[in-house]
Structures are given as C-alpha cells and as structure tokens.
Nucleic acid binder design. Structure first.
Length: 503
RNA sequence: CGGGGCGUGGCUCAGCUUGGUAGAGCGCUUAUCUGGGGGGUAAGAGGUCGCGGGUUCAAAUCCCGCCGCUCCGACCA
C-alpha cells in the first residue's frame, strides 16, 4: 500500500526534497515576510537541545551569558572598515519611530515627523555594539580575559532565503571575548572550535573538518577565521560554525585598551564565534531520508513513540500496557536525561498512518504493541535509521530502548563518516579538477594543492563554482600536509586544501 | 537589480482560449465499519475568484492599471 509520501525523493530533486522535509517533519514554516521563518515546536525542540548542549560547554569553559540590544546606531558599523564592507549590503535599517493613520485612506503610514535623527540598524552581528560596551568594562589586565556569550536573533537581508539554511532572521549564539595577548585569543578561538566540533560530532552525529579559512572566505574584520565544515548528502560543503581571531582590529576601532602589570596601555585582542539555526539545516541535510526526518537520539524531540494497536476491549488493555511501559521508559535516563516517550493513542488514525507520521517527524524508535503481543508478552521495536524491526519480550523493553538509542547515535555518525570518506577525493591536475566539478550539483570534497594566493582562489571559483572550504588543521590524510604544486597555477603549495561547492 | 511564472475554500490546483448559477483532490466535522505500513462508506461545513477601474444585459473568464508571491540570474560572515 505504498502511496505518495508527500516528500519528493532526494534523487528526483534534492532541493525540493529539503523543502518538503521541513514541512512534513513539522519543523518550520515560511512567514508572511519573505526570508523570515516560523520555527514550530518540533523544530524548536531540536534547537533547544542543541542550544543547551552548547551552553553547557560554554559555561564549563568559563564563559558567561549576557544580552546586548537588537538596535545599533548606524555609525557604529562603519568604525571597522572591513566589517562595514561585509555587512552593509544586508542590513535592515530603522528610520522612524512612529506610525499614523493614513490621512488619504485606511490603514497606517509612516509618520514623516517621526524620522530618527540617527538611523538604527538591526544587528547583523553584534561586534560593534558589544565593543562599544567593552571599552567601559575593560581597564586593567585584571579585567581580562573577558569571556561573554549571548543567545540572540540577528538579521541579514537575504535575497535567496531557505528555511534554516539561510534566513533573513535567525537564532544563534555569538561569543565575544577579550584577551591580553594574541596567543590567549588564539587559544580561545581553538577552544571554541573544539566545542563546535563536539556539538556537531557528539550531538548531531555530523562529522566535520576543522580548518582555517582562506583570506577570501574569512569573517569581515577578522585576522583569521576557523571553521567546521560538513558534507551534505548532495555532496556539497556546508559551513556549520565559525570562530574568529579578531586581532586588535575591533579594540583599535573602539579604542579598547587595558593597563598591563608594567603600567603600559595596550589594545586588547579579541575573538568572536557563532553557530546558528543553520545547524538544524545541516542536521537535516546530513541524515534525513525520503521518509522524512532522521534525528540523532540525543537531539530528538521524541526518542520513543508507542503505537497501541487494537479495538474495543483489546484497545483498552493495550493502552493500559502502553502507559505502563511509557512510565517505565520515561523514568529511565539515557545520555544524561530522561528518555522522551510519547504514546500515539489517537483513535481515528490507522497504525500505518502513524508509522509514517512519526517517521516524518523524526521519532527514533517506534514500539508497536497489540493484542497478539500482549498475549505473548512481546512488543515490536523499529529503528528509524535502519528500518529494522525486532520482536522483544516486554521485560527487556528498557534495555532494548537504551541499546536502540545508543546504536542509532553511533550508526548515524559512522554512516555520515562513510559518506564523507567515499566522496573525498584527491586531485592533482587542473583538467581533472574541472571534470570533477562539471555539472551543477555538489561533487564532494576535493583535496588539492593551492598556491595560497587570492588570485588563484578567485580563478578556481570563477571556473568551477567550487570554493576553498578550509585548510584543515589536521590533514585528512598525513600526505595532505606534504608540499606539492598548485592544481591551478602549478606554483609551489605548502599543503592540500579542501575544495567544494558550498551552501 | 534584470528575465520568466503564478494569484480561485485551510493546502494543491482545474475552470479563462470561445463571458451565462464557482469545481475537484487532499485536509476538516459527524456517524459507522475498520485497524501489525498512509483504510472503506455515508452525510456535512467552508470561497468578497489578489486589489482597483473599464467593456457588457451578464466578468473568475475580455481590456487597462496596481499589489503580492514565486522561480531563474546577479549578490551573499
């Protein structure tokens, strides 16, 4: 009885599949305002888990949360030259503070009398407003390091929005730290990069390449940028998180100095780092399938769904048993929190409908229990990632569930690693390089030598639409770190870098 | 900013060429049978046809103007 699932298959149209998936999994809607996104409870639940995991790691490494305001004076943006270049083109601007009834008709219009003396921008990122504060917060070396994070929304006026991957408004965290030395700031950026790697790999089951961005791809206003890069099922790269060493650029722009032990006045060194709701998009693109959302157990809103089967007297008995099992399982802890269980006892929907429904929504494990099972003292547990069904005795339910969750968390990561490994290739000639990127879609990670120049990077990108995703911190294979010759220019190259088409 | 496409129940769309009482599927409500991979039957509810003007006895349909959305291109820590 396989019917149209309502989700376009990945092979048919990957972009369409993604859109269908977000809808079918009930994660988010487009808002009436282009580019803005309504995050629905099922989607927000995933974000909350991820946010909590990250927040704990930030706190454990000495960071404190604070909150800086949404609106920034327009003049602040231009204090750091590269920064304004990077963001000016995508800023929403507040020009007025009042509306009035339309004198010529119905509705309201902007009151021309209420123009702001200085226009405000809605933060595209908060460096400027934060460094304005830091100037007053920091006087002595004793005030350092200053380790602050904030959870906030930001707005970048995107012309080509896609739910979660690129929206005009998005949720994120942005860390902003100040340090006495370059080296300390460097250590901070790498500490955070490691936290991002762990969030991706240990929570999201998404393997990432940790690396440094080329100058062309670094953050506007940074000295250098570190990144974690993941590979999606359509073989593109996606930048999942960045950590920037800002040098003294912002300290100089906002005149943030501190007095050293020796009594000298010096500019502080800064970092900033962020991950956003784009991580949800990354998660979807890496694991989900043609039946819907596949969610790593640690992040899943529903880890076990129980579907009671049967009618009349049977139904009552089965539901009673289901509740008993749900209580037992949900009082058990897995990976540090109580197992999230739901019983789908809706009467009208058929069992088959519910199977599909929960698969779309990303439930990790499904328990089917009916009159036949009750008599035999059994139930059936199915796993979302593999589709495997197993009959188990009721006394083993708790261990079967925890093993199922363990197995799925492990399998998703291993599967993603395998996909990445299969689609990472080494290329040494320009002919071959171009051939790999023929056509429109992703072509995996291409690990090739690069002469280190911006001109070459631009030329390669213009010819193939592939960009340098990063220079890996740890070579993917030991030989990647050996010198060679640039795949494009033939000039000397220190090591191989990762090229890909990117989101 | 350039080029295409589309606006009709909650959703997806048909109807428009050739003007004549607004339709289908899905979803929703109620009843009933059903139930281990998207069930069946029956009865219902729900629409100023994007907005404004024009032509006409009569406009979802023809004409003019506007608005909105969307796709492609350009752009994008």
């Amino acid at each position: 009885m396989s019917r149209d699932k309502g989700i376009t298959s990945r092979s048919e149209n990957y972009a369409e599949w993604y859109n269908d998936l977000v809808k079918a999994a009930d994660l988010a809607d487009n808002s009436v305002v282009r580019g803005c996104m309504v995050i629905k409870p099922n989607g927000y639940a995933v974000w909350e888990r991820l946010r909590d995991a990250l927040d704990n790691m930030f706190k454990d490494s000495g960071h404190k949360n604070a909150y800086f305001p949404l609106l920034i004076p327009k003049s602040f943006l231009s204090k750091e030259a590269e920064h304004v270049d990077g963001f000016a083109k995508e800023c929403a601007v507040v020009t007025h503070h009042r509306l009035m009834n339309d004198p010529n008709g119905t509705g309201v219009v902007v009151d021309p009398e209420a123009r702001l003396e200085e226009e405000l921008i809605i933060r595209p990122t908060s460096e400027t407003i934060i460094w304005h504060s830091y100037k007053n917060w920091i006087q002595s070396y004793r005030d350092l390091p200053l380790l602050i994070n904030q959870w906030a929304n930001v707005m970048r006026w995107e012309l080509r929005p896609r739910l979660f991957l690129r929206t005009a408004e998005f949720l994120w965290q942005e860390g902003h730290t100040a340090h006495a030395t370059y080296e300390e700031a460097e250590e901070e950026t790498l500490t955070i990069l490691e936290i991002y790697r762990r969030a991706a790999e240990e929570w999201m089951c998404v393997p990432v390449v940790c690396g440094i961005k080329s100058d062309g791809e670094k953050f506007a206003g940074a000295d250098h940028t570190y990144t974690i890069e993941a590979m999606t099922q359509d073989l593109r790269a996606i930048q999942a998180g960045t950590s920037h060493h800002l040098g003294q650029n912002f300290a100089k722009a906002f005149d943030v100095t501190f007095q050293t032990k020796e009594g000298k006045l010096e500019h502080v060194y800064a970092t900033s780092w962020g991950v956003s709701t784009r991580l949800i998009g990354t998660l979807l693109m890496v694991h989900s399938d043609d039946n819907g959302f596949v969610c790593p157990p640690k992040l899943a809103p529903t880890q076990l769904v129980i579907i009671p089967i049967g009618r009349g007297e049977d139904r009552e008995k089965v539901i009673a048993k289901a509740n008993e099992i749900a209580d037992q399982v949900s009082s058990t802890k897995w990976a540090g929190s109580k197992i999230r269980v739901e019983i789908d006892d809706r009467e009208k929907e058929s069992p088959g409908f519910k199977f599909n429904y929960w698969e779309m929504r990303g439930a990790c494990l499904r328990m089917e229990i009916g009159p036949r099972d009750l008599e035999a003292g059994n139930c059936v547990i199915a796993r979302r990632d593999t589709g495997d069904k197993e009959t188990i005795t009721l006394s083993d339910v708790v261990s079967a569930v925890t093993q199922g969750l363990d197995g799925m968390q492990k399998n998703l990561f291993e599967r993603a690693v395998a996909m990445r490994t299969e689609n990472t290739i080494r290329v040494d000639t320009w002919d071959e390089f171009q051939k790999v990127f023929e056509g429109e879609g992703g072509a995996g990670f291409v690990v090739a030598h690069w002469d280190g120049t911006q001109e070459t990077e631009d030329a390669i990108s213009a010819a193939t639409k592939a960009t340098i995703r990063c220079i890996p911190l740890t070579p993917l294979e030991p030989s990647d770190a050996e010198p060679g010759v640039c795949v494009y220019s033939g000039k000397p190259s220190k090591q191989r870098v990762v090229f890909a088409r990117a989101y």
